[in-house]
Each structure stands twice: as structure tokens, then as C-alpha cells.
Amino acid sequence: MCKDSNGNVLQDGDSVTLTQDLKVKGTSVNLKRGTLIKNIRITDNPEEIECHAEKVKNLVLKTKFLRKH
């Protein structure tokens, strides 16, 4: 079961907000706190989700940096 930083259960297609600024490895992109990410996909690892964000496709984020929108 995949949960966000507040303990809310995440499901495929949910929208989430970043709780802190994140540097995307391998790119010059910085995702700012408060960035809305739509249509997430749950992975086999309950601590990670897949998504698309500002100019970055196939991004994997840790759920501890997310809050369900």
C-alpha cells in the first residue's frame, strides 16, 4: 500500500503536491515545493511512484516528499 507523507493512501491517477524542493538527477531541472503532479502511477515499491513533471518524463519520486492533493 502506497502512502504519502501524511499517511494518506495513494492510488493510480491521483494528484500530489511536492512538500520540498527536489533536484532531478541527470538533468538541470529543479522541482519546486508546491508543484502539482497529476496522474501518478503506483510502482511495485510502496515508497515510490512514477509520474511526468515539468519537462521530465518517466520520473520516479519517493512518497515521503509528496502530499495527496
Rank of each mutant, 00 (worst) to 15 (best):
M1D: 13
K3H: 15
S15H: 08
T63S: 03
N8P: 07
K68D: 04
K68N: 09
K32H: 05
H52N: 14
L36H: 07
F65I: 10
A53N: 10
P46Q: 07
N45C: 11
L66G: 06
E54T: 12
K3W: 06
K25I: 07
L61Q: 02
D4M: 08
R33P: 00
I42E: 04
K68A: 08
K57G: 14
K38S: 14
T63K: 06
N8Q: 09
G13C: 02
R67C: 12
N6M: 08
D4F: 05
F65P: 08
E54H: 13
L59E: 02
L59P: 10
E54G: 10
I37R: 02
K3F: 14
L31Y: 03
R67S: 13
G34Y: 03
V60L: 15
K32Q: 13
T19E: 00
Q20V: 07
I42A: 08
D44K: 14
K32S: 07
A53C: 08
K55R: 09
K68S: 03
E50D: 14
N58K: 15
Q11C: 10
L18S: 02
E50V: 06
T27L: 01
V9F: 04
K23D: 09
N45R: 08
L61C: 09
L31I: 11
K64W: 07
C2F: 15
L61H: 05
L61V: 06
T63Y: 09
H69G: 07
E48W: 11
K38L: 03
K64N: 14
E50Q: 15
K38W: 04
A53K: 06
V56Q: 10
C2G: 05
G7N: 01
I40R: 03
G7D: 00
G26W: 01
K25N: 13
I49M: 10
